[in-house]
Nucleic acid binder design. Sequence first.
DNA 1: CCAATTTTTTGAACAACGTTCATTTTTCTG
DNA 2: CAGAAAAATGAACGTTGTTCAAAAAATTGG
Lengths: 199, 199
Amino acid sequence: MSDKRESRKAELRGRLLDAAEAQIAREGLASLKAREVTREAGCALGALYNVFEDLDRLVLDVNLRTLSRLKVMLAEACEAADPTPRAQLEALATVYAEFALGEPQLWQALFNHRVPMEVITDVYRTEHAPLIELIVPPLGILRPDLTGANLVQRARTLFSAVHGVVHLSLLGRVVGVPQEMLVEEVRALVQTLTKEPVA
Amino acid sequence: MSDKRESRKAELRGRLLDAAEAQIAREGLASLKAREVTREAGCALGALYNVFEDLDRLVLDVNLRTLSRLKVMLAEACEAADPTPRAQLEALATVYAEFALGEPQLWQALFNHRVPMEVITDVYRTEHAPLIELIVPPLGILRPDLTGANLVQRARTLFSAVHGVVHLSLLGRVVGVPQEMLVEEVRALVQTLTKEPVA
DNA sequence: CCAATTTTTTGAACAACGTTCATTTTTCTG
DNA sequence: CAGAAAAATGAACGTTGTTCAAAAAATTGG
């Protein structure tokens, strides 16, 4: 009868994840407190450390959830959009920007969270990769001059460029693009970046 | 004889800034501690709060220093490079990437540091603006189709795109470009983004 | 069904953090 | 040089994340 225990543990895990996600979404990653999370999840302070190794590990799992949701939305956008490669890439960038605008705190938590490199490479490798994999096919059509490795490289650069515009815009400092123009600007960026081959 | 007092205060201020900068450069923004800074600066713990309102304010001043150095390097790169607008922009992007690679912790502190929006807009507006102002002239030559406001907008987008590639590369997660290829990739990005007008 | 044992849950206690402020030390002034 | 003003000090406070002995609950053997 260990599935009873495991299911209760999984239930608590879920409540803690919900509470942490809600608090990050509400107040931001920086003001996530172990005491507030456990209070909202309805358990003792120490219970958190029976389920998660660390508060960092809890945040990481919230981030994995966020990434999952983002991946789904990106995939759906691909299917809904015109099948032309240009439209596909534009849809991806648009959804990415809209996701960041819609849930800024959860999106920022993806990148502000510092965890040891070993954990990162193990977990994020499999979770971040799909974002790039959605970009590669349409970009490959637009850029037949690029071989496999170079194509992936350029996909990463394209993603990073869009990410940078979103990142600085949400940071709200003067360098960034005003948020009202973010989606429009990201679209223009994708247009420019997919226009034609570069030496 | 109040200049003696003020000069001693300025001296302590300098020592605290030096210590904080060194510690951020060494261990990163997250592990900057008030006690360690004051110990390294050779003063009491409370002395920090006679000179700076806050630990956040100390970090902000370290960031302003870093921005100053970066601005100088960017301006120098502009003068040293070919006077063609394309070469100017490429030089700017290269120096930006190299600066981030050379002092990753100080560079990251510029963007990971969260301070109240009021302070940001007051201080960073005058300090971040020059980065954009270096981009506007050469970009304006390459893009005569853009009017004043639109040109500034596109300059911000160009800066943000380059920033994004650098940011994700330094984060060291899988989405980013490998650091060995960062400068090369940033150059290619600038080339592509300055190629020709976009509708 | 109960007692013994194992497992889980609990929250007081701890170390480390930023920040404050009464006290001491130093500096300036008449 | 004495008295006043200013600056430097570090003990103390409130909050953090994390631990762990003790309490509570669940499982098991007779």
